[in-house]
Nucleic acid binder design. Structure first.
Lengths: 336, 336
DNA sequence: CTGTTAGCGCTTTCAA
DNA sequence: TTGAAAGCGCTAACAG
């Protein structure tokens, strides 16, 4: 067992409260006593027991992150952004992967509550969303969400995916494209998918470019899906540009287009969403709507900390924050 | 405040110990009493307070991960592997990013100790390694490391990078390459860098292929670095193959080679280490030494859990585990 | 400047 | 089958 405040007290021949004062930098301790206590603490490698402190003090220094999947680069960067903020303010970060499943996310809620974390940063699973939000409310911990489907009055931070779709659509039209198709996941009811599509549709509508359900090809999220879909797209007469709702689709597509001898962007423009560093270095660099993931994590973390601080004082007014996307124009789309 | 064991006790009109027995599934409680207590607990959404339990019970259900950078895909996958194991055994995962800096890693050590985590999974920073290991020992928590430089008797799990270098070297020689150069980070003294290089050298030595310090080009880790180095490599007469110690270097290189109109693999073979899913879908798919990152995380997590269990009983004999690399042969290297 | 006392919510032991 | 009592290591209030 490690040394405790009482151990130090008995070694120093004082009461444990005096030790506490010294260790917590409180005033009103004779300098000599202070020195002596500090020396003993150092000598014995004293380390505060946060369990005890948090239990007693009714507050925690750890924050829970309920996310979809830490091995997904989106969440990995986002978590890093949040953790950097938390660390700076001396909070620790505990993670829980939900795989976007409601049951697993709910389990995370309980786990976090058990540990009496100070607050929660949560990516709401896209199925069973409203049930989950109810539980989240019930668990009675301060929380901030990442983008949810329901327009709600939670605190949240989100990418402005709709705007992303919009600026990408505009860009393609400006380049001269008049016949555009879209690769989307089969599962259309997640927030980013929906929003990106809506933005795209809005842009094309404004420009008078025809675009219907039939121009949306539903497949999946992965490289393989984009790869597979290439041949089908090439059968459609007149198509000069493809919007992939996720970069992996675009990258798989690029690969297959190369195999087929289709020149990008001359014969076919390709574009996507998410934008990772690699997009610049692909043999055909990829035009992509960049979503600042690290920033999203930071903002979410900061909002939660603000909330924790305000809660102590005045009542909190919930905040919603949208993060602007940036269109990264690269070789895969060029003026026709 | 949430409801406590005592609250339930007073509502049920029993002592808090009886409640405890029920909640912890202990025997010797009258069925009626049990039901009543469970009903009350459910009704009031009782959730155990782990802080109290851990403090009192002298054990924790959270495990600390000290890693370099969660936004690095290597660590993201590794953490996912470890967390999956921990979750299954009802442990929580708390993370701390060290950015491979000794001071930050040490800070993580203290943070984790404060929380009295059950154990530690740690990626040792490559500078100040032996100092850090001393601190790690002092902090007095059960731990397992990921690959360290020093041959030591810690528990650890690691990729067999040396073997990776070896099989890649062999592969290139078998394809007929006789003049091979290598792109490496300037900072050569990290374990994976060293080991990969050693393996490569061993393979080439065995095959009687000349390879000297002058054939190692020191640059960095990133796409940009590989990109920049391409021109220099092309100036070297007779070179037919490049080994990049990290895939990002290879991908940057591929990009620049394409710009220069160099055909891969016909004019130049390119290969790397790390292997992410995307490597298959690059326009020129990349031959790479695949290191199963998720598995490494799992193995590390499992080893730590084993250690935690054994420690309670018999003395523990430290274990070292090497994870085998797999060479993924793709288009960027082909028989000459 | 210092100490006493009570308590956070749970666990453990012993006694009934 | 149940409860009383002490304690985990720290905090907070009050007293001196």
């Amino acid at each position: 067992m490690s040394i405790t405040i009482k151990d130090i007290a008995s070694i120093a021949g004082v009461s444990h409260v005096t030790v506490l004062r010294v260790l917590n930098g409180k005033p009103n301790v004779k300098p000599q006593t202070r020195e002596k206590i500090l020396a003993i603490a150092r000598e014995h490698n004293y380390v505060t027991n946060r369990l005890a402190r948090n239990l007693s003090g009714k507050q925690s220094n750890v924050i829970g992150l309920i996310i979809t999947d830490i091995s997904n680069p989106l969440y990995a960067e986002l978590v890093r952004g949040a953790d950097d903020v938390f660390s700076k303010h001396n909070y620790r970060t505990i993670i829980h992967n939900s795989d976007n499943q409601k049951v697993l996310a709910s389990k995370g809620l309980i786990n976090m509550k058990e540990l009496r974390v100070a607050g929660l940063l949560v990516a709401v699973p896209s199925k069973g969303e409203s049930d989950f939000l109810k539980e989240l409310e019930q668990i009675d911990l301060p929380y901030v969400c990442f983008s949810t489907n329901k327009s709600n009055d939670n605190d949240y931070v989100a990418f402005d995916d709709e705007k992303g779709g919009y600026i990408l659509g505009k860009h393609l039209v400006e380049l001269g494209h008049r016949r555009i198709v879209c690769l989307a996941p089969e599962e259309r009811n997640t927030r980013p998918t929906q929003a990106r599509l809506e933005g795209l549709q809005r842009a094309l509508r404004e420009c008078g470019i025809p675009f219907s359900e039939a121009d949306i090809f539903e497949i999946g999220f992965g490289y393989q899906d984009g790869y597979r879909m290439a041949d089908r797209i090439l059968q459609i007469p007149g198509v000069t540009a493809t919007v992939c709702l996720y970069d992996k689709l675009a990258i798989g597509l690029l690969r297959r287009l190369k195999e087929r001898g289709i020149s990008v962007p001359d014969d076919m423009a390709v574009s996507g969403f998410d934008d990772n560093e690699i997009s610049t270095f692909l043999e055909t660099s990829l035009t992509s709507v960049s979503l600042p993931k690290y920033t999203l994590g930071q903002k979410g973390g900061q909002l939660l900390l603000d909330k924790l601080n305000y809660l102590a004082e005045s009542p909190w007014v919930s905040q919603q924050m949208m993060i602007e996307p940036v269109l990264m124009i690269r070789e895969s789309t060029k003026r026709m």
